[in-house]
Design a protein around this nucleic acid. Sequence first.
DNA 1: CTAGAATCTGACATGGATGTCAGGGACAAG
DNA 2: CTTGTCCCTGACATCCATGTCAGATTCTAG
Lengths: 151, 151
Amino acid sequence: MRIGELAERTGASVRSLRYYEEQRLLVSTRSAGGQRHYAPEAVGRVALLQRLYAAGLSSTTIAELLPCVDSPSETNSDAAFERMAQERDRLSDHITELIRTRDALDELMAINRQYRERPRTGVSACAVPLPGASRRAVLSGSAPRGSASPR
Amino acid sequence: MRIGELAERTGASVRSLRYYEEQRLLVSTRSAGGQRHYAPEAVGRVALLQRLYAAGLSSTTIAELLPCVDSPSETNSDAAFERMAQERDRLSDHITELIRTRDALDELMAINRQYRERPRTGVSACAVPLPGASRRAVLSGSAPRGSASPR
DNA sequence: CTAGAATCTGACATGGATGTCAGGGACAAG
DNA sequence: CTTGTCCCTGACATCCATGTCAGATTCTAG
């Protein structure tokens, strides 16, 4: 298939696909006239690249671990394997962190719901917010406060 | 405390702290001579900001949902609440995606271990990027699971 | 008072994936 | 052949959190 079709199938822009190739993450054969032609598996390849990019890996990092993907048997892919393990762990830590952040958001939203479901509350003087303890927790251990700016 | 101390305590650079203020995400009082001075709670605030940045939110997005953090009671933080809910969901989706990516990496590593634990394998003849069924799964798809890494 | 450390503002630099534009071929269908 | 669509290369633009540098001012300890 040609580059337009691959782009359409993967959701990547044509520009990005060329960039991936430039970074040696994706290969193509060229037609007589110089146009790129891709094997069907390229779709999966691009999907993997998108995944890795979305996980925060850079082009060079991806390039470093790809040998491990393309030829798992090669002994000299030792470094690649190492790199992959390392990135895997980094990613895992990052996930943990993101989950904590999501929890923090959930907590903040819960607090807000309390305030908004209580139609009354002339308590714009939130000097001491009611569920004090939980708010404290959300802000990572220290008291937030500061009556916000009235915009 | 002054900016240097806050930087040290949070791990953020002095440059970043000034930037946060410029983006209206962090406030400071000024000493007579114009130097920034922070309340102890600023540490928690910066931690929250770092969390949100790490979750991929931009300065403007953070600014949009902060009212919700600073004054949960304010009725006009409706938009902020909406924004927060929206970002929360985005984040949650992203986490799901990252977990899939981690699974993919685990699977790839498992495959690699098979090859390398089998000391044999003169199979450097990977002229044709070989391919196995399992590989296909990893590259294109879903199949969660994965032998957890032995750490 | 003074030296040295910390801070201030303002500006420019950076990196990295991607967007976009220009000018020129490639190629399928009529 | 002609036309319309796709593709090519190369270059420059963009976003945005940070880094970095310069020159000036403030603060602190001796």
